[in-house]
Structure formats: structure tokens, C-alpha cells
Simulated scan of single mutants.
Amino acid sequence: MAPEAVHGQVLLGTGPPTREELLVYYPAKFTWEQLKCFVNSGDLGLLKRDKKLQKRYNAWAEGIKEKYGSIVNYLLNYRLQWGQPDTLSLLGSALDESLPSQGTRKLLDPSVSRPLPPIPPDAPPYFAADTPKEFISIIQNDWPYSVPPEVEHTLIWTRLPVFHPDLISSSIAARVEQDGLWGFTGTTTLPPSPSLLPTYLPALSEWGVTIDKLIRSAKGSDEEEALVKRAGSYIDAFVRQRWVEDEWETAWFVNPPRLQSVLGLAHIHVFARHK
């Protein structure tokens, strides 16, 4: 489809946006400090996509569903590239500057629904820093949240469990089921306190977010907080390994199991800012 409008020299098209389109037509609604506070709030639903970009995504998704049958089929038949670098993204990452952009990939028959490759018996039991690359697909979010332009929004898709009984004590299972997990790397200071939310929530006013609508667990005992930290430590170790702390500051999160969108897969969101 032909571009719909021109703003300066940047064309407004359809489908996944370019970085230039994000800057011109979908400017960030919140700052890096606000983003970190939202991640640290305990309600990951505070992280939002620009409403106009969401509308564009919805239109794109309808076409994808017609072609592939579902978004899941699109992911499994085309977008996720197990063990390979992401050469399909229009946005790219500073970590992958040597990769060709807008790469090509053999298109599998979109009419055929394919299951995930089976997990071999000798595979690790859960996702960790040393997870073999064939169980991981790291891609840029083609439809990023409303993050500042200097922040990359990356998705780590994994075929191995992120939530596993060996990692999550039964005493915190209900809390993790509601809240998910999150963390921060590359900084010597504490993340912005959730107490700042009343100051930062006006940035989310167009989504109708107010303090009384938040869904989050109360702070637990020191023992419970330590168990939650342990549950996310393997994710944290992976993030620190990929986004070297001398060069990157990150905020990461993984939605709770009840909100995972693809059966048999987990995905971790990483917001990374180059220092």
C-alpha cells in the first residue's frame, strides 16, 4: 500500500514502523526514568504502545491472520529464527550493527500450522545464562512500546521454561503468577521507587491509567523478596551477559504465565539504553 502521508522527508506507511516513523509520528510518551518506575511498580500493564501505533498494529495483524491463519503461525513459520541473529527487523540493534538489515528468509507455507520443534531429553530444564542458542530467538520488537528514542526494545523468545518449580518457591508462586518478574542491570543506583507513581502516571493519562486501577502485590517479607529475586536471577544473568553493564543500562521484565501469548513459549522484554 502506498504511504498515506509525508511529514518532512519521512513517509508514513503501513506495517511495522521504521525508526524514523517512530520519531516523527509516534514520539515517546514517557521518559527512561518513568519507564523504569513503571517496570518497578509491580504492574507491568503500565507499559503501553502509542495508541496510533496500536491502531496501525491492529490493521497489520488482520492481514497477517489472513495470510498465516494466526499471529502464532506467523511467529513460528517466519519471524522467530531459532539460534540465528535477527536480520528481519526494520529497527535493528546497536548490538547487531554488522548484520544486514531487512534480510530475507525462506517463507514456509503459511497455510500449514507447525508446532514448536520438540525439546530433546538432554535439554536444560529452564532458561538460564548458558542456554544453548537453538532454544532462543532474540528479535527487536517490531511494534515497540512508547519508549524514548535512545532505548531499544528487544524480545527474547525461548522454548525453555522461564517459570519453573525449581526456581519458584511455592510460597511466592501466587505472587509471581500475578506480577511476573523484572529487574535492572547496568546501574549502581536503585531503580525509581514505586512511590513516584503519582508523579509519573500523568504520562499515561491518555490510556486512562490511575493509581486505583493498578494490580500489584504488596511488598513481601525479606525472605519472600529474596525468593522473588532468586526466581528472576537466571534471566538477570542472561541480560547482564548480553548487554554488558559497562556499556548498557537495562530494565527487563517477563509477563506472568497467565499472560504468556504463545503456548509453549516464553518471552522476555528488555529495554536497553546505551551509555
Rank of each mutant, 00 (worst) to 15 (best):
residue 219 K to T: 15
residue 128 A to C: 14
residue 263 L to K: 14
residue 106 K to S: 15
residue 3 P to N: 09
residue 238 F to W: 15
residue 48 K to H: 07
residue 238 F to K: 12
residue 14 T to A: 15
residue 80 L to F: 03
residue 142 D to Y: 00
residue 106 K to E: 15
residue 183 G to D: 06
residue 173 A to G: 03
residue 186 G to R: 00
residue 21 E to H: 02
residue 98 S to F: 10
residue 133 K to L: 13
residue 133 K to G: 09
residue 65 K to S: 09
residue 234 Y to K: 14
residue 154 T to D: 10
residue 32 W to L: 06
residue 72 V to E: 15
residue 50 D to N: 14
residue 162 V to C: 07
residue 232 G to L: 05
residue 244 V to N: 14
residue 84 Q to D: 11
residue 16 P to D: 04
residue 155 L to I: 12
residue 163 F to D: 08
residue 178 Q to T: 12
residue 67 K to V: 12
residue 254 V to K: 01
residue 89 S to G: 05
residue 208 G to C: 05
residue 53 L to A: 01
residue 43 D to Y: 03
residue 194 P to E: 07
residue 102 Q to E: 11
residue 114 R to C: 07
residue 31 T to C: 05
residue 198 P to A: 09
residue 246 D to P: 03
residue 92 G to F: 00
residue 44 L to H: 14
residue 218 A to Q: 13
residue 173 A to E: 13
residue 70 S to P: 02
residue 174 A to I: 07
residue 258 R to M: 11
residue 78 Y to V: 02
residue 98 S to N: 12
residue 5 A to V: 06
residue 190 L to C: 08
residue 238 F to P: 01
residue 181 L to T: 01
residue 59 A to N: 10
residue 233 S to Y: 04
residue 233 S to R: 08
residue 10 V to N: 06
residue 183 G to C: 06
residue 44 L to A: 10
residue 5 A to S: 13
residue 106 K to W: 15
residue 112 V to P: 00
residue 267 H to Y: 05
residue 274 H to A: 11
residue 197 L to D: 06
residue 179 D to E: 15
residue 203 A to N: 10
residue 138 I to V: 15
residue 151 V to M: 05
residue 46 L to I: 07
residue 157 W to Y: 14
residue 270 V to L: 01
residue 189 T to R: 12
residue 136 I to E: 00
residue 272 A to Y: 02
residue 121 P to T: 11
residue 181 L to C: 04
residue 128 A to T: 15
residue 56 R to I: 03
residue 174 A to C: 08
residue 217 S to M: 09
residue 230 R to E: 15
residue 108 L to T: 09
residue 55 K to F: 11
residue 127 F to I: 05
residue 51 K to H: 11
residue 97 E to I: 11
residue 71 I to P: 01
residue 224 E to S: 10
residue 74 Y to K: 05
residue 106 K to M: 14
residue 175 R to V: 15
residue 116 L to F: 03
residue 90 L to F: 13
residue 217 S to Q: 11
residue 183 G to R: 02
residue 26 Y to L: 01
residue 126 Y to W: 10
residue 187 T to Y: 08
residue 137 S to R: 08
residue 57 Y to T: 00
residue 149 P to R: 03
residue 27 P to M: 08
residue 243 W to K: 04
residue 272 A to P: 03
residue 261 S to G: 04
residue 194 P to T: 10
residue 29 K to V: 10
residue 200 Y to G: 07
residue 168 I to S: 05
residue 50 D to I: 02
residue 263 L to H: 09
residue 155 L to F: 06
residue 157 W to R: 01
residue 245 E to P: 02
residue 1 M to L: 13
residue 129 A to W: 01
residue 57 Y to M: 09
residue 63 G to C: 12
residue 127 F to R: 05
residue 12 L to A: 10
residue 37 C to V: 07
residue 67 K to L: 13
residue 134 E to R: 14
residue 39 V to C: 11
residue 257 P to V: 14
residue 95 L to H: 04
residue 145 Y to F: 14
residue 103 G to A: 00
residue 149 P to I: 03
residue 74 Y to D: 00
residue 173 A to H: 12
residue 271 F to R: 06
residue 241 Q to L: 12
residue 47 L to H: 07
residue 105 R to A: 12
residue 264 G to P: 04
residue 25 Y to D: 03
residue 141 N to W: 00
residue 43 D to L: 04
residue 267 H to R: 01
residue 100 P to R: 04
residue 165 P to S: 12
residue 172 I to P: 02
residue 159 R to C: 00
residue 71 I to G: 01
residue 37 C to E: 06
residue 56 R to C: 03
